[in-house]
């Protein structure tokens, strides 16, 4: 099995997929670092070098003004209200939610990447793992060796797990190293507040905990890794089912994008919570965002994703083992 995995790793490396992913991540991180840097500069220009408390206070007032202005939806209004409550909590506890430094950048970047950007990167690697062998015809050589089919597919799946892990690590590492050039590498121990409970329109702060940022990052990246793995597994299944790589990618892309869109508009369609793409935003539960559908919890989302992942895996193996190769 190790030899088979070695073969698959060789293919991924030689196709330069990981390199492409690393390149894309590096460019995006540089882009966001620069834009955030400009944002900070602008704020400095406008308000001068003020304490973060003043800035946060100002933000709260800004948001309150937005809520009272007419023409915004009720949903958006309640989300803004939640944000104010959260910021107020930070202010009351004298914790800076945006402690400057690379770790904070990594934290927010991961939060925003978990439901679309990272899944896309995983797709780059996973989408053609099986289908490319079929379209290139090499599958005929692969499956006429004295190796059982399930072992061939298993070696590919293990390779997928490894690649996903590499991508997640690269993601963290690159965003830390690049953003640190501007913001500095400090801030590992800055306190972060987690455990907000959203009940209706109210923010429940009873279960709130204050933990150092490194611990928060650890939790966050475990969730990121898990999401990446599930998205990878589903893409893997499509790669087995659909011989044509672009078609498979199209299907996955459509699912991911519809997930991103649906998340902001399905609060009244309750059964949508069983779709995997609605459940990708796991980090939202850590930072205390309102879930897309009321009543969804971290445990629920983890369960839904796990079921999707296992189902995808079963389908992949069942189909691959029985399939006639023409």
């Amino acid at each position: 099995m190790i030899n088979l995995v070695k073969n698959e790793m060789l293919k991924i490396v030689r196709k330069k997929r990981i390199l492409v992913v690393a390149g894309i991540i590096a460019v995006l991180v540089a882009l966001f670092t620069y834009s955030q840097f400009r944002e900070i500069e602008r704020r400095l220009e406008r308000f001068g070098d003020v304490d973060w408390r003043t800035t946060l206070q100002q933000q709260i007032i800004d948001t309150q003004n937005r809520i009272t202005s007419s023409g915004i939806s009720d949903e958006w209004k309640s989300e803004l209200q939640l944000r104010i409550q959260q910021q107020q909590y930070y202010l009351d506890n004298d914790v800076n939610p945006m402690e400057p430094g690379a770790p904070t950048f990594v934290r927010t970047f991961a939060e925003h990447s978990i439901n679309l950007f990272l899944p896309l990167m995983v797709m780059v690697v996973a989408a053609d793992m099986v289908s490319s062998e079929r379209s290139a015809g090499t599958v005929k050589l692969l499956l006429t060796r004295p190796v059982k089919r399930w072992r061939v597919l298993m070696s590919k799946y293990i390779t997928l797990i490894l690649s996903v892990s590499v991508i997640v690590v690269l993601f963290g590492l690159l965003s830390y190293l690049i953003s640190g050039l501007i913001f500095g590498y400090q801030g590992w121990t800055a306190p972060v507040i987690t455990g907000f409970n959203v009940e209706g329109n109210e923010l429940n702060t009873n279960t709130v905990q204050m933990i150092p940022q490194w611990q928060y990052l650890l939790m966050e990246f475990s969730l990121v890794w898990f999401v990446a793995l599930i998205v990878g597994t589903i893409t893997f299944m499509l790669s087995v089912l659909i011989r044509n790589t672009p078609a498979g990618m199209g299907v996955m892309l459509a699912a991911l994008i519809s997930g991103a869109i649906l998340s902001s508009m399905v609060s009244s369609w309750e059964s949508a919570k069983y779709l995997f793409m609605i459940n990708l935003n796991l980090t939202g539960y850590l930072s205390g965002q309102a879930p897309p559908i009321e009543g969804m919890t971290l445990g629920f989302s983890l369960l839904v994703l796990t079921i999707w992942g296992i189902a995808a895996l079963i389908v992949s193996f069942a189909v691959f083992i029985r399939q006639d190769i023409y």
Partner: peptide, 22 residues
């Protein structure tokens, strides 16, 4: 089977190594 479809992005030797590992 049909055309000898090997991994075009690998060298001949790597292709052989690949199949030898199986």
């Amino acid at each position: 089977v049909e055309n000898p479809e090997l991994y075009s992005y690998l060298t001949g030797w790597e292709n052989l190594e690949h199949f030898a590992r199986m």
